Amino acid sequence: MRTVTEQSIDERAAGDPGGRRRRRGLVVSLIAVLLAVLLVGHRAVPNVHGLGSLVDSATPLLGLGVPVLGLAALLRRSRRALLAVLLPAVVWVALYGGVWLPSAAGAGPASFRVASQNLRSGNPDPAATVGALAAADVDLIGLQEVDDDRVDAVLRQRYPHRAAVSTVALWSRWPIRDSVGVDTGLGWDRALRAVVAAPQGDLVVYVVHLGSARAGHTATRDETLAALAAAVRADQASRLVLLGDLNTAPTDRVFVPLTRLLRDAQADAGQGFGFTWPAELPVTRPDHVLYRGLTPTTAGVLRTPDSDHRAVTAGFRW
């Protein structure tokens, strides 16, 4: 036979759903904390079979989990869970909120403008793609996956100077004094280095297409990026621009060797993440304009027809 005290405790427990509400909010709270930890420590994820690189590249998109968790907390009517969701929200804003602020890049007009575009092998109308780049009134165009003579036919009148190695090429309004292939360890050159005789002085331009990366298969990309970083490190040019599809996002840990040598035009003079791939609904940025010895004035993304990548553009002042 139960005592009166035991009976009253049982009755209160049966009539008070607070414990159940706390348990319902607990799952959302735990996920929110784990999301915040992943945002802060994504580079601690082991890079086994490219897993770490994949998580690094996707980190900016993890912010999409915040409104989902917030909605779940509301549906569960859990104030504790709502407070927990604030943690990843604050972390994401601290890490990436600044990319949406107006650029603090150098004021004034650009001395020259550049564009980089992966044309896509087998592009049904590469002439339309490069026509959109030419219409953007840039001075230098770096292209990857060039495999069609129609490209040169469209560009040669406005850009009479050209350098090419395998499937990468540079078109310039100004004379190209020298160009050589750059070995990135693929067994064949898929990068070039050119010296452009710009009106203000010589400018070294790299056009690069690094090794491909797929889920679970990033070793080739990683090796080519390391080789490219070594080539740039050995280059004595004081003014240098690198245009290309590097098959990696700027948040990827393997990108660090390049960021130690060159600056990112999108980060310094653009607004937003500058995603370029896939073109229809871009969720990452494998296409880059990197530089040193110059002042960026603008940077952005250009939608072009018939390619699976959007183009990247940037303006610079000497």
Rank of each mutant, 00 (worst) to 15 (best):
V90L: 15
G15S: 15
T129A: 13
A231M: 00
R233T: 06
L82M: 15
R120Y: 11
L155H: 06
L54P: 00
V256Q: 11
V91K: 04
S116D: 11
A169M: 11
A115I: 07
D10N: 05
V40I: 14
L242S: 06
G65W: 09
L75P: 06
V85I: 12
L51W: 04
I141C: 02
A279L: 09
G270W: 04
G108R: 09
R24W: 12
L30Q: 00
P126Q: 08
G244K: 11
P199Q: 06
D264R: 04
A44D: 07
I176P: 02
R24S: 12
T298K: 00
G187C: 09
S8M: 12
H309P: 10
P88S: 10
F255H: 15
R120N: 11
L140K: 02
R150D: 11
H217D: 15
W171E: 03
V66Y: 08
L210F: 01
A44E: 09
P67I: 12
L26G: 12
R285H: 11
L30H: 00
R253D: 11
Q271L: 07
A269P: 08
L30V: 15
R24K: 12
V196M: 00
A311K: 10
A237R: 02
T298S: 14
Q7S: 13
V114W: 04
G18A: 13
L203D: 00
V182Y: 07
H309D: 09
G106Y: 00
A164C: 01
L242K: 03
E223K: 13
L51I: 12
G15Q: 14
R12T: 11
L258H: 09
T248Q: 13
A94E: 07
